[in-house]
Computed example of a mutant assay.
Amino acid sequence: MSGHSLVFELTSDLIRRVSVTPDDAGCQAVLAARLATAGFQIEQLRYGEVDNLWATHGRGRPVFVLLGHTDVVPSGPPEAWTSPPFEPAIRDGRLYGRGAADMKSGVAAMVVAAEDFVRRHPDHTGTLAILVTSDEEGRSIDGVRRVVEEFRRRGQPIDFCLVGEPSSQRALGDLIRVGRRGSLSGHLVVRGVQGHVAYPEKARNPIHAAAPALAELAATRWDEGDADFPPTSFQISNLSAGTGAGNVIPGALTVLFNFRFGTASSAAGLRARVEECLQRHGLDFVLDWDLSGEPFLTPPGSLRDAVEAAVQACCARRPEASTGGGTSDGRFIAPLGAEVVELGPVNASIHQVDEHIDLAELEALPVLYGEVIARCLEKHRP
């Protein structure tokens, strides 16, 4: 049986499992059984409701990690789908189902590629590892973030990390992520005094008080970006206040906002500038911050060279290197000193109704990942 049919069957098996974050729904048990049969050492790390799988083959440096997740976002109303979201279906040369692109195909391709590599290179240099979590689409607290804390405690190094997130834009390998912006969120509560709208002198409207400050924050040019990252983005995502009655001045206003920032700004600097603005406007406020990840960048080097060469060899194209998009679990791996690159299928349908992956692209994925593994591990053979 070919590796291509193996990746199709494994992807389909994973799609059938309703692994809405953080529920793994048995996906990792399937992966662990296969990898154990291939000679991998299996460790299951469960924190809270989250399953994490750490599978390794070989020993020593370099340590090459394939990183993915088995959890998916909710499907939404099943009736909105052309076929049931958790039943794989083939139409027009595509495989449909929740997770088909993000990222059960990537996880399946990584496992098939790893199986094939250790079969052909049983005495390969270094360590080949697979790390899979069920907490990427959710809070990302007990997934890779928590695993990395354990790795720090153990002194577990990682040299190279290939993340199987759907990075491609129009064709497999046309774009790779070589870094990601940091993400800093704020939960702001502006306190006022509740009262009757007919007696504003007896109340203090937090919406009116906050509006000038929020307008200033929204209009601020935080930085100019740099050669690797665009300028910092500030977005207000939620505003809420009031009792539901039209004749009551609210006692508090809640504002949720987010920064996406590169290396031209720091999280500490952004926090200080926001708090200075709020204080200067005389607001009575409480502000809680959540830094979900610092920006990271993998410069040209061994992993980028290997990925670019593999894409050229397997896909006959030169990939564009980008730091755009949202965040990924690579943000937790990079601080370990690892080179991190994201390479995966086309992302046009992710998180959407009728999510899908092109069948030819699915079949090419394990070959592409296998080429990257070989270029990183075999080139370091003494």
Score class of each variant (00 low, 15 high):
residue 99 G to N: 13
residue 155 G to P: 14
residue 290 D to I: 01
residue 380 H to I: 02
residue 75 S to Y: 06
residue 174 D to P: 15
residue 227 A to Y: 00
residue 261 F to K: 00
residue 162 L to A: 14
residue 253 L to F: 04
residue 189 V to A: 15
residue 373 I to N: 03
residue 16 R to M: 15
residue 73 V to L: 05
residue 342 E to T: 00
residue 52 N to Y: 06
residue 11 T to H: 15
residue 46 R to G: 07
residue 42 I to L: 10
residue 178 V to R: 02
residue 214 L to M: 04
residue 231 P to Y: 11
residue 54 W to Q: 06
residue 70 T to E: 12
residue 207 I to H: 07
residue 319 P to C: 06
residue 321 A to G: 01
residue 196 H to E: 01
residue 2 S to N: 03
residue 368 L to T: 02
residue 350 I to Q: 10
residue 242 G to W: 06
residue 232 T to M: 00
residue 302 S to V: 11
residue 265 S to T: 09
residue 68 G to K: 06
residue 275 E to T: 14
residue 299 P to E: 04
residue 244 G to K: 03
residue 176 I to A: 03
residue 204 R to M: 04
residue 216 E to S: 07
residue 69 H to C: 04
residue 97 G to F: 12
residue 309 A to C: 08
residue 132 V to F: 07
residue 329 D to G: 10
residue 164 G to N: 08
residue 67 L to C: 09
residue 240 S to R: 15
residue 358 D to M: 07
residue 138 G to V: 04
residue 73 V to H: 08
residue 133 T to A: 04
residue 253 L to G: 06
residue 330 G to S: 05
residue 194 Q to Y: 09
residue 322 S to R: 02
residue 174 D to Q: 12
residue 299 P to C: 01
residue 289 W to R: 12
residue 90 I to E: 15
residue 161 C to N: 13
residue 238 N to Y: 14
residue 36 A to Q: 15
residue 311 V to R: 12
residue 290 D to F: 03
residue 259 F to I: 00
residue 267 A to L: 13
residue 64 F to A: 05
residue 40 F to G: 08
residue 292 S to G: 14
residue 351 H to I: 00
residue 317 R to E: 14
residue 300 P to Q: 05
residue 58 G to W: 07
residue 314 C to F: 12
residue 372 V to M: 08
